[in-house]
Design a protein around this nucleic acid. Structure first.
Length: 502
RNA sequence: GCUCCGUUGGUGUAGUCCGGCCAAUCAUUUCGGCCUUUCGAGCCGAUGACCUGGGUUCAAAUCCCAGACGGAGCACCA
């Protein structure tokens, strides 16, 4: 068919191929976009810790949709729990930096703890509409009533009383645990998660932000987020499956206020392979406080800051998150995906360097001049590294040949191992490598080296690199040949490098 | 216990709405070949999947029923 068309009209074939159905984006289209003038979305981070890998999904996916639909993106810090999920003042900026690192810029930034009066106002409207009541049941008791589908005695409180009692909450004359404001939904609702949920509660602990430290009456996510989504004209809510029942609860608020609920997309759980540390801000924090991790950017931590320090580009992470899509089923993210993306990004620029870990010294006989090895095998114009083996070489223990066996020292030639740790150059040509009988290994000259500390997710190793390593500046990505790519983190009398990936 | 959601190779994803062109896409991983004085990259190739059982149909990954398995929620957390 195609062959026939080619013979009749080659231009038509070319057009078929360019307009082909290959999508530019791997993300599924957002629902009902034609009904909105502009696609408006929000990131809703809780600023209680810097981002970990799981958090990256939100900015990566929403940011990609923003670019695709020329949409609008809000970053709204949902910091309405001064106690259990106590905000970390440093995290607000760190999260914004993490988002920028992933490649996106919010069109607007809002902080929920600046907006309490707004939430109170809307609560008053809901109360007047008969949509909420104050309740002083202990949490456990209410939970039992709820499970049974029965009303608590406060459900019939007159609106005037509810108003008065809510104002007391706002004024802060009520203490934590004494009273809450509940949204009236349906006690007979099939889903117990939806029945008369809490919209506001008292928190005795002051908020860490000065702007908010005097408030004691705090909204819960379902209420705060519901109000803000409407006020900022969000059209598409994109979030995790853990909030799947949230929409069902929030719709009651929207009904009382006569608003229309946005479109919702939920994605499933993500797990990441290769890490022993769980993908949870609280676990990471515990490990840091216990001293098991050096900080949020420890190479063993599954955080954005850590990947960044290892020289993983934000684009590589974003691409993997986008590839993960928005399926509601659980997914496992392979780090190899991110590594593969990153290799594409850094391979051309990364200079090659020899690093020998736990080197074993050998004398070398027969060498008459320094070896020349390319800085980058694909770019001759970047020159060569000169390594002089005449004072002996260091080899990695795993590379040392057995007595009488040969190896090929990269850039130098074939050597055979004799008695007394002496290597002798042979006159073998490269054919011995081609036919597979001799392995090619890296090496460094004894006495002309730069000490290296290589910090990896699996632990730190030390070694000696060729002296030229010291000429590369901080942040340079190098490839330690046969070991992998690493980012130079610190250059002093020794080099500290963070391992990225093979 | 109640409610909701999901299940395509090791991993992720396309296809499922509107059954046939699906002996199932693309990527990653692993393995092999070519090339390359390493690794990586590049090129070529291989391995590998429709949860199970019924039903409807000329035809089912796709529709229906049942089951299994997995995930989420039922917080005065987000």
């Amino acid at each position: 068919m195609r062959d026939r068309l080619t013979s009749i009209d080659p231009a038509a074939v070319a057009e078929l191929e360019t307009t082909d159905d290959t999508p530019d984006h791997s993300l599924p289209p957002l629902p009902n976009i034609e009904e909105y003038e502009q696609v408006r979305m929000r990131l809703a981070p809780n600023p209680n810790a810097p981002y970990h890998l799981g958090h990256a999904r939100m900015p990566a996916v929403i940011g990609t949709y923003k670019e695709r639909y020329d949409g609008w993106m809000l970053c709204r810090f949902d910091d309405t729990d001064p106690e259990t999920k106590r905000p970390d003042l440093a995290a607000y900026d760190q999260i914004l930096e993490d988002v920028a690192f992933l490649g996106f810029e919010p069109d607007e930034v809002l902080i929920a703890s600046d907006r309490l009066e707004l939430y109170y106002d809307h609560a008053r409207t809901v109360i007047d509409a008969g949509g909420a009541y104050t309740c002083s049941c202990p949490a456990g008791e209410f939970s039992e009533l709820k499970a049974a589908g029965e009303a608590c005695p406060h459900r019939d409180t007159p609106i005037d009383t509810v108003n008065k009692e809510f104002e007391e909450m706002v004024e802060g004359v009520v203490s934590s645990g004494e009273r809450v404001l509940r949204i009236r939904s349906e006690l007979g609702h099939d889903n117990p998660a939806v029945r008369d949920w809490v919209a506001f509660r008292m928190v005795d602990t002051p908020h860490p932000r000065d702007e908010a430290k005097s408030y004691r009456c705090w909204p819960l996510l379902d209420f705060q987020s519901a109000i803000d989504d409407h006020l900022t004209a969000v059209t598409h809510i994109i979030r995790g499956i853990d909030l799947q029942d949230s929409a069902k609860r929030q719709r009651y608020v929207y009904d009382y206020l006569d608003w229309t609920y946005p479109e919702v997309v939920h994605w499933g759980r993500v797990k990441v392979d290769e890490y022993d540390v769980p993908l949870s801000a609280s676990s990471i924090r515990e490990l840091i406080e216990a001293g098991s991790l050096a900080g949020w950017d420890d190479p063993r931590a599954p955080t954005i800051a850590s990947l960044r320090r290892r020289g993983i580009r934000g684009e590589a992470i974003t691409a993997a998150m986008v590839e993960l899509g928005t399926s509601t089923s659980s997914a496992e993210l392979s780090m190899s995906w991110i590594y593969s993306n990153n290799r594409d990004l850094i391979d051309t620029e990364a200079p090659r360097v020899f690093l020998v870990r736990e080197g074993r010294p050998f004398d070398l006989e027969g060498a008459t001049s320094p070896a020349k090895v390319p800085v980058h095998p694909d770019h001759d114009d970047r020159g060569v590294r000169r390594l002089d083996p005449r004072d002996g070489v260091l080899l990695e223990p795993a590379d040392v040949p057995a007595l009488g066996e040969s190896v090929w020292l990269k850039g130098l030639g074939c050597v055979v191992r004799g008695e007394d740790d002496i290597l002798s150059l042979t006159d073998d040509g490269i054919e011995v490598v081609r036919d597979g009988s001799v392995d090619v290994i890296h090496w460094v000259p004894q006495g002309d080296t730069q000490p290296v500390e290589l910090r990896r997710p699996t632990g730190t190793v030390t070694g000696l690199a060729e002296a030229g390593l010291s000429s590369h500046g901080t942040d340079t990505m190098v490839q330690f040949e046969r070991i992998g790519f690493a980012r130079i983190d610190e250059q002093t009398e020794q080099t500290v490098a963070y391992f990225a990936h093979r």
